[in-house]
Simulated scan of single mutants.
Amino acid sequence: MPLLRFLLHLFLFIGALAAASVLVLSILLMLRFPPLLLAVVLACWMLSRVLRLLRPDQGNPT
Rank of each mutant, 00 (worst) to 15 (best):
F6T: 05
L12C: 09
A43F: 15
L38W: 12
L38D: 02
F13L: 08
A18Q: 04
L37D: 00
I27V: 14
L10G: 09
R52W: 12
P56G: 06
V22L: 15
F13D: 01
V22F: 02
P2S: 12
L4P: 00
V40W: 01
P56W: 00
T62Y: 07
L17S: 11
L7N: 14
M46P: 00
Q58F: 05
M30N: 01
P2W: 10
M1Y: 08
Q58R: 13
L42F: 02
L53S: 12
L4H: 05
L12N: 08
I27K: 12
F11M: 08
L31C: 08
V24P: 00
S26Q: 14
C44I: 09
L53V: 12
A19C: 10
V41M: 02
F11L: 12
V41W: 00
G59W: 02
V40C: 10
L28V: 13
A18L: 15
G59N: 05
A19I: 08
V24Y: 01
C44V: 11
V41K: 00
P34F: 02
L54T: 05
L53W: 10
L8K: 08
A39G: 13
F6M: 04
V41Q: 00
A18E: 05
L47E: 07
A20D: 06
V50R: 06
L42K: 14
V40F: 15
V41D: 00
R5Y: 02
L36K: 05
P56T: 02
I14S: 05
L38F: 14
N60M: 02
L10A: 10
M46N: 12
L4W: 03
A39R: 14
G15F: 08
T62R: 11
L28W: 04
M1G: 07
L29S: 10
A39N: 08
R32C: 06
V41N: 01
S26I: 11
L54K: 05
F6C: 03
P35G: 11
L47W: 07
L37R: 12
V22Q: 03
P61T: 04
L42S: 10
P61N: 05
L12M: 06
R32T: 07
A18T: 11
L36G: 03
L23T: 13
R55M: 09
L29K: 07
W45T: 15
F13K: 04
L37A: 15
M46T: 12
L4C: 09
T62S: 13
C44H: 05
G59R: 05
A20L: 15
H9N: 13
F11W: 06
L25K: 14
F6E: 01
L42M: 04
A19N: 10
P2R: 14
L54C: 09
A20T: 13
L25F: 10
H9C: 08
